[in-house]
Design a protein around this nucleic acid. Structure first.
Lengths: 192, 192
DNA sequence: CGAGTAAGTCATCGATCGATGACAAACGCT
DNA sequence: AGCGTTTGTCATCGATCGATGACTTACTCG
């Protein structure tokens, strides 16, 4: 088989693989250009298939987006429930801000942020941030306004993510992860 | 003149007023729904005029957006050049995060954030954040990685703005401004 | 092999978008 | 009052969007 034959050969038909390819392409596009800035034709082109498959496999563009931003449940962040807020915050820094390369590109929270024009996305974002990430953190602060202080930590985390992935700040984006973690920890500990 | 006559009476023609009305409507729409989520017809409807005036007065939708996000130059934040980073950071918290009600709605930085899908908007955002706001801050930190620490402050500020205006976090959005400023200051001072 | 099903493509629809140019109406000036 | 200019409106264009249904091609299983 010549090279030209290989290039023109019809690719293997595989429902699961195509679905995953569409999902990956969608995540990447949505992360970079947001929901409105991404067309189903863009996604399909990246995935190398026809755009109509999006509707057959996912129903609609919105449904595809909903599945693209579904977090892959880190489930347990592996933190001692009795540890202080700084320990949990550090774990969140690693998960949300500093991509370890294992995950599929951008963190769902940051993908949602790029599409925050949609009210339903803002709602999901609020639920995710407050109920999922910050609720546990608030229990580890002592004192009266533990919830406010935990939201300040949330602000720091989101801000770091934004600085790295939206504003592509020259320093923070390239800084040594351990140094960044140390600075973040110091700021969190100032709230205890 | 009856009430019906008053309602149906043609409104007075005023180029400057119409231009301002369009600009205000644009700022509001762009702030809430982002660039892509806003149509010129939406803006014109809010302003109560025809959409074609946008092109006559501003040239294009992009030009209108560029003018809508143009900061009204706080120029001098009124901070002692010799003061520490926490003092300047506190001034920035008041300007960017806590709306004092005087400005025209949302801060341009947060408006840009809602339209960060556009590469040119990200570029403007980076320039604005790094060169305009953080450059001065970096000079007030001592030690080696002053630029990194100033970007951590920037992350905190942006995160607070996002928590308040995008994620509408229940606590931070309604919290006492002075308490929020105190917490932010404590976090900044932890970096000194 | 051959029929049935699943996977992928093509043509196209209706809505909406940014943008243009022709037209109507109100204003200012003499 | 009358005329030219400015201000606002209407009709419409071409492109692009999400979405649908008919069609073609490849795979599977008997």
């Amino acid at each position: 088989m010549t090279y030209a034959d290989f290039m023109n050969a019809p690719k293997r038909r595989d429902r699961a693989a195509t679905r995953t390819a569409l999902l990956d392409a969608a995540r990447s596009r949505f992360a970079e250009h947001g929901f409105d800035g991404t067309s189903v034709r863009d996604i399909a082109a990246d995935a190398g298939v026809d755009a109509t498959l999006i509707f057959r496999y996912f129903g609609s563009k919105k449904d595809l987006f909903a599945e693209a931003i579904r977090a892959e449940v880190p489930e347990d962040i592996g933190t001692d429930p009795d540890a202080g807020p700084a320990v949990l915050a550090d774990a969140l820094v690693r998960e949300v801000v500093l991509d370890d390369g294992t995950g599929p590109g951008e963190h769902p929270l940051l993908v949602m942020l790029r599409s925050a024009g949609r009210p339903e996305v803002r709602k999901r974002l609020r639920e995710e941030v407050c109920d999922r990430y910050l609720a546990d953190l608030a229990t580890r602060f002592e004192g009266e306004d533990a919830d406010l202080r935990s939201e300040m930590v949330g602000a720091l985390l989101i801000g770091m993510g934004v600085m790295r992935s939206v504003v592509v700040s020259p320093v923070l984006s390239e800084a040594d992860p351990d140094r960044v973690r140390a600075l973040a920890s110091a700021m969190v500990e100032a709230l205890e």
